[in-house]
């Protein structure tokens, strides 16, 4: 009886503490630059500098052994998305004066990636240096990463008998060797600035808020999905450039944290609760019900 009471108190204490810990803290709402990810390698894309040469597409295809990108005519005919054999695309948008505005898209490499949190076998994992890396040998092909990604980046090789999830790797191999990602080096116009996230956020703010007449007053990726390693600034609306403007500002893995807190509670609470109900329903000395008309 003594042991039972002590166990009960332990369970009650643990559940109470767990409930407190899982409450969202108000300080998160006040946050400026999230400290998390500040030291990660990142890219700032200044779309006002991009000339649409698509050299990054060619360099990406070469570095990742992908098929050659299509000709300019075909490439700009319609808005393209990345695919299993195409990790980055440059799309053409329009400025207010009718001139072209180009935007390079690829995996955003979130600071807290939804895809990696969704992966039950950790084939997708966030490296401390920044890239969201993929290990095909672990992947079981459930495609939950595709469901989870708010930017719909992971693509699947449906045509292969042994398929893989495919997306921009942020050239994690090259970065590990101290080199910059393939797309960065070939950019002739300086549209892609490469550095640590903390520095790039500062640089983005300097440009955007220093030139309020030129830039749209928003840094896409500073807060989107809890912050991404690829960030964008522009002088047109992000919606027009095809960005997912409905993306939450909160970290996506955090969305499920409450639901993932349920199992420990159920595992500690259900067995004693159910046994209590059993004891209650059999309190009049009835047997356990197996003596009925059926085995």
């Amino acid at each position: 009886m003594k042991l039972g009471r002590r166990t009960f108190l332990k369970v009650a204490g643990a559940s109470g503490t767990a409930a407190l810990v899982s409450l969202p803290s108000p300080s998160q709402a006040r946050g400026r630059v999230p400290v998390a990810g500040e030291e990660e390698r990142s890219v700032l894309v200044d779309t006002t500098l991009c000339v649409g040469c698509r050299g990054c597409e060619a360099a990406c295809a070469e570095a990742n052994k992908l098929p050659d990108p299509p000709s300019d005519e075909k490439a700009f005919a319609a808005q393209r998305t990345t695919g299993p054999e195409c990790f980055t695309v440059v799309n053409r948008g329009e400025k207010a004066d009718g001139g072209p505005r180009f935007v390079k898209r690829q995996c955003m490499h979130c600071v807290e990636p939804a895809c990696a949190s969704a992966c039950p076998v950790r084939a997708l994992d966030k490296l401390s240096t920044g890239p969201v890396a993929y290990d095909g040998s672990k992947c079981m092909g459930c495609r939950y990463c595709m469901v989870a990604c708010p930017f719909s980046v992971p693509k699947y090789q449906y045509d292969k008998a042994i398929p893989l999830v495919r997306k921009c790797t942020f050239c994690s191999g090259r970065q590990a060797e101290g080199k910059e990602p393939a797309c960065i080096g070939v950019c002739p116009s300086g549209a892609l600035a490469y550095g640590t996230r903390g520095k790039l956020v500062e640089e983005a703010r300097r440009r955007v808020f220093g030139n309020p007449d030129k830039y749209t007053q928003h840094i896409y990726g500073e807060h989107e999905a809890g912050g991404t390693n690829w960030m964008y600034i522009t002088d047109v609306s992000f919606e027009k450039l095809g960005f997912e403007v409905a993306v939450n500002d909160n970290s996506y893995p955090k969305l499920v944290r409450g639901a993932l807190g349920v199992p420990p509670v159920v595992m500690t609470l259900w067995p004693p609760l159910l046994m209590g109900l059993w004891a209650f329903s059999h309190r009049n000395g009835k047997d356990n019900g197996n003596g009925g008309n059926h085995g």
Partner: peptide
């Protein structure tokens, strides 16, 4: 599943 044998992971 694309590669069900990796379910073991």
């Amino acid at each position: 599943l694309g590669k069900p044998w990796n379910m073991i992971g």
